[in-house]
């Protein structure tokens, strides 16, 4: 299958839910722009950068710096949620310092957006985003989808339920990492889509059949080792493991239209309405940066015309739910609920 066909396949199978069909395939907007088409960045910018992706965001920033010697880029780094809270606190104290916020999860962007600090994304950047990803006040940079990695030596794909809510009723053993941030976003999505009571029941039902891991790469490795039949993890852990161990018994499955196939994204927002801040965002959405994040971090590019990372299954059949990603910011009720259910 050609790459473009795969993209179409993913889209046709409804990978996007609220992220419309076709969004991962060819779209009606222009393809990603090359960095060569962008103006040189000149002046001073302060970026608040949530840590993530094992330093690959830093590589992008370094590349932008090198290419724009007249740009003075000040960076404040920290855990994404902490930076979001700092931004809100600074604004309340009329001491705003940041021009931009680049966050590893959209929930933190939601916190800042709700505080009314974000400036609208300009059309020159927005029009290149995949349809359905064109938000008003933030630009998704790269995405990751929740998946069910499974061990084909232990089960057939038909044994995997299409609904995440049905998983406790199967006889499958499941690996999960409840302490992991992405897992908690997934449970938050479930809470929002299914309600607290159903989510609590699901967590309690799962407990009996789960094996706990500290992180989601551990989950995926546990699946490939045959410790469990199936796992709950972001897609890129499987792609990375397969890149290191091409023969590992590991495949990806997706649930349909529920939290089990949540598509979450990192993103950037302008906090000052300046050409410089908006042009910085355009650099992050270039063909070059998007391709880099797809090939090096296995993230899903958010701009039209950029190939998906190698290794996504040819027969991918995901159908993410309709959910406003920035609503995932409110993780506290989720943690309370997880504690109630005895999984944290």
């Amino acid at each position: 299958m050609e790459r473009r066909e795969l993209l179409r396949g993913l889209a046709a199978l409804g990978l996007l839910g609220s992220w419309p069909m076709g969004a991962l395939g060819a779209g009606d907007a222009g393809d990603a722009v090359s960095v060569d088409e962008l103006p040189e960045l000149e002046g001073e910018l302060t970026l608040y950068l949530g840590r993530g992706e094992g330093g690959l965001y830093e590589d992008v920033i370094e590349a932008i710096r090198k290419r724009n010697p007249k740009l003075t880029l000040n960076i404040r780094r920290g855990p994404t949620v902490a930076l979001a809270n700092t931004l809100v606190a600074e604004a309340e104290a009329s001491a705003q310092q940041a021009d931009l916020f680049w966050a590893v999860d959209s929930g933190s962007l939601g916190l800042v957006s709700e505080a009314g600090l974000a400036k609208p994304v300009r059309e020159e950047a927005r029009s290149h985003l995949r349809e359905g990803f064109r938000y008003e006040d933030w630009a998704p940079v790269s995405g990751r989808v929740r998946t069910l990695p499974y061990n084909p030596d232990r089960l057939e794909p038909k044994q995997i339920p299409e609904s995440i809510m049905a998983l406790p009723d199967t006889d499958l053993s499941v690996g999960w990492a409840p302490a992991y941030g992405s897992f908690q976003s997934f449970v938050t999505a479930m809470r929002l889509l299914e309600g607290d009571a159903a989510t609590r029941d699901w967590l309690r039902g799962m407990k009996a059949r789960t094996r706990q891991y500290a992180g989601e790469l551990g989950v995926v490795m546990g699946v490939s080792r045959g410790e469990v039949d199936i796992g709950l993890a972001n897609h890129y852990y499987t792609l990375r493991l397969k890149a290191g161990q091409p023969d590992a018994p590991l495949e990806l499955a997706f649930t349909k239209d529920d939290a089990g196939s949540l598509l979450n994204a990192s993103g950037v927002m302008a906090l000052r309405d300046t050409d410089l801040a908006h042009n910085f965002i355009r650099y992050l959405l270039t063909q070059e940066v998007q391709s880099y994040l797809a090939s090096e971090a296995y993230e899903i590019p958010m701009v039209e015309g950029v190939a998906l990372p190698e290794g996504l299954p040819e027969a991918a059949s995901a159908n993410p739910p309709s959910i406003e990603l920035t609503r995932l910011a409110d993780v506290r009720p989720t943690l309370t609920l997880m504690r109630d259910a005895g999984v944290l």
Binding site: G54, G55, A214, G215, L217, Y236, Y237, R240, L241, A243, G244, A297
Partner: peptide
């Protein structure tokens, strides 16, 4: 966790 992604490929 931050390094194992890059490491596992090697």
């Amino acid at each position: 966790e931050g390094i194992e992604g890059a490491l596992i490929e090697q």
